[in-house]
Amino acid sequence: MQFNNKQPIYMQIIEYIIIDIINGKYIDNNKLPSVREIALALQVNPNTIQKAYTELESLDIIYTKRNSGSFVKDDNNLINKLKKELLDNKTKEYLDYMEKLGINKEEIINYIKEM
């Protein structure tokens, strides 16, 4: 997990966890690493990780059991839902950026086909 200091770290943590969920990391074992574990591994303030977890909980993606830890929600549609959300956001970002460069959708589609 790499992160940069230019954007709020907790948002980057959220994105990485979502990516991991989409890639099926939590299908067999839905327990997330503890706040402390991630904080130590990334050398990040534990409060920042906690903020990410709290946000994920409010987005209804994970739940926390006191003294047990945090777990990914057991929802069959979760992966697809998250995948679509991420796809929507990233594509919109990409299209906005291309628009700034004056590149239209057709040019983009041809370019992708050739890649």
């Binding site: 940069n4 200091n5 230019k6 954007q7 709020p8 770290i9 303030n45 920042t48 903020k51």
Partner: peptide, 14 residues
């Protein structure tokens, strides 16, 4: 710290 980062989209150092 995080508030600063989201406001300015820069690292604290910058």
């Amino acid at each position: 710290a995080e508030k600063l980062r989201s406001e300015k989209n820069m690292s604290i150092n910058d």
